[in-house]
Structure formats: structure tokens, C-alpha cells
């Protein structure tokens, strides 16, 4: 087993809102090993982004957000650090790439300036050194004519180029952990292939840990070694990419994987669908949170809260009381797929 660089224990993030306290992340635990890519998947609104932004404590703690649990990074609990020490971690030891590169880059500074910023702050380089490093970084992420590009503004670059600049900024200080929040969602497939290739090769070259957040399961199948599936602020299944894709145990994971339109094999006349939508955070169902949408639901599911259980060796975990049953035989779905329920 490789060295763990990040270990999250029982993390909860809640927000104070006008409609009461919303717990967006509820008791999440997982770890990231050195040099591995962990995929975090789930539908919109299931807490993937909040989890990742909580790692860097990006929410306003004074008025709205409250964290609980422990986030151990290199053996040190990030939730106990002061703001000043936290700032030394952000963009230095842990960096983040956001989905929308255009709105994440500052439109009034050149890309060179923005790549140099973390170098000037964290590594205390001189301006000339930082500039030289910025050109090197642009070359590393595969931008042609880097000397010319450092002088350009974000609006002068294409979507794929901007995402590469974001990656260059994130990698400037050689972080130990990179959090990529939907890095290719806004991009075309050909550009997506370029960017994922880049992230993979940099992950190997720099042996940094990566958390890849995405709702595109094919991207996960291709790049990640382990996967955690989230639903309504909790992890419902975690395992190696093969366990998750070959024999998903949780009904939610099964549903997600069956909903993908396949690129190979027979085309069915209808796609599988998970009925209904993710409920709002102030309408969390009692018992198993997936029960209202689950095709295998029993009345006991609605009564008892489910724990995330180890299913055997290799760290495969599932939050479902019927998983053993569902694995051994094809348990009869209680309702037909597609039947609407409480939309």
C-alpha cells in the first residue's frame, strides 16, 4: 500500500441559510494515496464540489459554513490550522482546477502574471525567475509559443488553452495533491482527450495525488484507479475502478452505470433511467437516502439509517443493507425502471 497523502475522517460541511442549516456533506471519509487518481462521482447537487472545496476550506467560516471532522494532509489536520497557515497550503501543497476556466482566470491580468503569482508568493522567486518558470510551465502543459502566450490575456485564448493555463497555475508550485473539479465538462471531446491525457501524464511524471470530480463516468473509467460515488452528501460506494464498473453493488451506482449510452455493443431501444431527481437538502428522506428512487427498496430501507460497510478485502465499501442479496442473485426490482416517484 502506498503512502496516504490525504485522509478525510467523518467530514461534514453545513451552511447556515435563511431556511435553516443545510448539511451539504454528511460524514464523508476517504483517502488519497500518493500518485493515484481518485474519482469522485455523482449527480449535480450530491456534494462532490462542496467536499473538495472543504478540503481547501474555501467557504466563509465566519458567517455561513461550518466544518466538522478531520482532514489529515501530511499528518496535519487542516481544520485546526489558522487562516495564515491555510494560505500556505492553498496553491502550494494542494491546488485546484475549476470547471469554468474563463471565469476562474482574472480577465485584467496576463496569463503570465497569473502563473507567476503563486511562485512569487509561495516560493519567493524573483520576478525574472518566476517569468522563466512560467514559460517552462506553459511548455509543460503543451502550449505552443509560450514566450508569446505569457503576455496574452485570458480572452485571447481558446477554451482548451485556458484550461491548460489553469493547470499550469495549479502545478506552478509542484503540489502534492491536485483537485480537478469537472476540468473537461465545458470542453469538446477532442479537447477533453488532450486535457485528460495531460493530467494523466503529469500525474505520472510528478507522482502527485489527484482527486478528479466529474459526472462523466466514461472519463472516470479511463483515468481513475479508485472511485467514490456520492449521493446526497454521503459516500454510497467506494472501490477500485474495476469493482465499481464490473460489479457495482449499490443500486445508485448500478443505475448511474446503466444510464450511460454505450459506445460499443448492442443498442437497446430504451436507455435505463433512475427515476426522479436528487431531493433538496432540506428534504432529505429518513432511512436510506436513496430509498425513494431505489428500484430494490424494502420497507425496512425507509426506517433504518444505512452505514457504509466494508464488504471484504481491498477497501470496497457500500452503504446498502441489501447489497449481499443483490450481488448473489438478481433480486427482483420492487418497481419497474422508469416509474415516476415523487418528482
Amino acid at each position: 500500500m502506498r503512502e496516504k497523502i490525504l485522509e478525510i475522517e467523518n467530514l461534514s460541511t453545513s451552511f447556515k441559510t435563511e431556511r435553516g442549516i443545510m448539511k451539504a456533506v454528511d460524514g464523508v471519509s476517504f483517502h488519497v494515496e500518493k500518485g493515484e487518481i481518485l474519482g469522485l462521482v455523482g449527480e449535480s447537487g450530491c456534494g462532490k464540489s462542496v467536499t473538495s472545496q472543504s478540503i481547501l476550506r474555501l467557504y466563509d467560516e465566519k458567517y455561513t459554513a461550518e466544518y466538522e471532522g478531520r482532514i489529515l494532509f501530511d499528518g496535519c489536520d487542516l481544520l485546526t490550522l489558522g487562516e495564515k497557515e491555510m494560505r500556505k497550503i492553498r496553491g502550494h501543497e494542494i491546488s485546484m482546477i475549476f470547471q469554468d476556466a474563463l471565469s476562474s482566470l482574472n480577465p485584467v491580468f496576463t496569463v503570465g502574471n497569473q502563473i507567476m503569482e503563486p511562485l512569487l508568493i509561495h516560493q519567493k522567486l524573483s520576478k525574472e525567475e518566476a517569468r522563466k518558470k512560467a514559460v517552462e510551465l506553459l511548455t509543460l502543459v503543451g502550449i505552443p509559443m509560450p514566450e508569446k502566450r505569457v503576455e496574452q490575456y485570458p480572452h485571447e485564448l481558446s477554451g482548451g488553452m485556458r484550461q491548460r493555463v489553469m493547470i499550469a497555475i495549479a502545478l506552478a508550485c509542484r503540489p502534492k495533491l491536485l483537485i480537478a473539479d469537472e476540468p473537461t465538462t465545458a470542453l469538446d471531446v477532442t479537447v477533453q482527450a488532450q486535457i485528460m491525457d495531460l493530467i494523466l501524464s503529469l500525474n505520472k511524471k510528478l507522482s502527485m495525488g489527484v482527486i478528479l470530480i466529474t459526472h462523466d463516468l466514461s472519463v472516470v473509467a479511463e483515468t481513475c484507479s479508485r472511485v467514490a460515488v456520492m449521493y446526497l452528501g454521503q459516500i454510497v460506494e467506494e472501490g477500485s475502478v474495476f469493482e465499481i464498473f464490473d460489479s457495482p453493488s449499490h443500486p445508485y451506482t448500478k443505475g448511474l452505470i446503466q444510464s450511460i449510452p454505450r459506445m460499443a455493443g448492442e443498442r437497446a431501444r430504451r436507455l435505463y433511467m433512475i427515476p426522479g431527481t436528487v431531493p433538496l437538502l432540506n428534504q432529505i428522506p429518513s432511512g436510506c437516502r436513496f430509498a425513494p428512487r431505489c428500484p430494490y427498496v424494502l420497507s425496512a430501507c425507509r426506517k433504518r439509517t444505512q452505514e457504509l460497510l466494508e464488504t471484504g478485502a481491498g477497501g470496497h465499501r457500500v452503504r446498502c443493507m441489501r447489497f449481499a442479496e443483490l450481488e448473489t442473485k438478481e433480486a427482483a426490482p420492487v418497481r419497474a425502471a422508469g416509474e415516476e416517484c415523487g418528482v
Binding site: 477532442t190 477533453q192 491525457d197 463516468l217 479511463e222 454505450r262
Partner: peptide, 25 residues
């Protein structure tokens, strides 16, 4: 051919041979 090769495979056992396009549109 390029477009088809760029689509990620939904099977983790299959590693796709990929034609990566150079440059932008």
C-alpha cells in the same frame, strides 16, 4: 476517426488507441 477515438471508453479494462488532434479549430 479523430472524433470517435476521442470519446472515452466506458469500460475500465479497455485502453483506447487515441489520435490526439494538434492545435485548435
Amino acid at each position: 476517426k479523430v472524433l470517435l477515438s476521442a470519446v472515452p471508453s466506458d469500460n475500465p479494462h479497455v485502453k483506447k488507441e487515441r489520435v490526439i488532434l494538434e492545435g485548435d479549430l
